[in-house]
């Protein structure tokens, strides 16, 4: 699964550099002392129980919440250069009755580069078509967003992020409750993006997925538990340390060990 050809890729430029970063909501510290790097064309999985700070970290990278210490650099710049970061929220936070078509949602990804006043033109429509193509939803372009299945909505939001041509993509638990078909479609898209040199940060509960698409793992539980290459970090001991507080029962049968030795 995890081919050992990742060595030469470390030469790729840094897409995201986080060092000693802490974040807070109002006065309440939310996440402390996080440090990791993400290179172009690679993916990092953020793993931790509910409330461990996964969403906080994503919002911190986006600059939506207050950083109290440390650095966060996107492509060597802080704050991130305009249009460099794409963000895919969870579809279930959106109003399913909102009167927009999938195409209109994806077009929102173009607004920032369009600027005020200007209306979308031919080029923007081409970008939208390409983004829909990339997630395999071209034929549903004119469907109302709320009528899509949960998985299709998630892919649609990914298309919106793609339409802006990001260098760094943040996904907030994109695989929650997806069926196999949508999951596969999403995995394929993420792999293709990586091949194009996009850096991807995914918060997830799904260790299977982490193995499929990510080189590295960041374990969170109110702070950083561990960060490093997938096989080294996902040890029984680390995962226990990460999830102990939520009382998840772990033993050698449920913990992910490299799959060829698994049960």
């Amino acid at each position: 699964m995890n081919e050992n050809d990742s060595q030469p890729r470390t030469a790729a430029p840094l897409a995201l550099h986080v060092a000693g970063a802490s974040f807070a909501y109002a006065q309440t510290p939310a996440l402390e002392d996080v440090a990791f790097d993400l290179r172009a064309g690679e993916a990092v999985a953020l793993i931790g129980p509910n409330g461990s700070g996964k969403s906080t970290l994503l919002k911190g990278v986006l600059g939506l919440i207050h950083r109290t210490a440390g650095t966060v650099e996107v492509l060597g710049e802080s704050p991130a250069p305009a249009g460099a970061v794409g963000y895919v929220p969870q579809a279930d936070e959106l109003d399913p009755e909102f009167p927009v078509t999938l195409e209109q949602v994806v077009m929102m990804g173009r607004y920032r580069s369009l600027g005020w006043l200007r209306l979308p033109g031919k080029r923007d429509r081409a970008h939208v078509a390409a983004a829909l193509e990339a997630v395999g939803l071209s034929e549903r372009a004119r469907t109302r967003f709320g009528e899509l299945s949960g998985g299709q909505q998630q892919r649609g939001l990914l298309a919106r992020a793609l339409a802006s041509g990001p260098r760094l993509l943040l996904l907030d638990e994109p695989f929650n409750g997806l069926d196999q078909e949508n999951r596969n479609a999403l995995v394929d898209t993420v792999k293709r993006l990586k091949a194009d040199g996009v850096a991807v940060l995914i918060s997830t509960h799904d260790l299977e997925l982490a193995r499929d698409v990510c080189e590295s793992v960041l374990l969170l539980n109110g702070g950083q538990v561990a960060f490093g290459p997938l096989d080294e970090v996902l040890s029984l001991e680390n995962v226990q340390r990460t999830f102990r507080s939520v009382g998840v029962e772990l033993d050698e049968h449920t913990v992910v060990v490299p799959s060829h030795t698994g049960h």
Partner: peptide
């Protein structure tokens, strides 16, 4: 009128709207 498309984006998805830098 001059902010209409941004208003619609904001109405649909506040977090996504802030995330792209608005």
């Amino acid at each position: 009128g001059v902010t209409l498309k941004e208003q619609l984006f904001r109405a649909f998805d506040r977090t996504g709207f802030s995330a792209v830098g608005y």
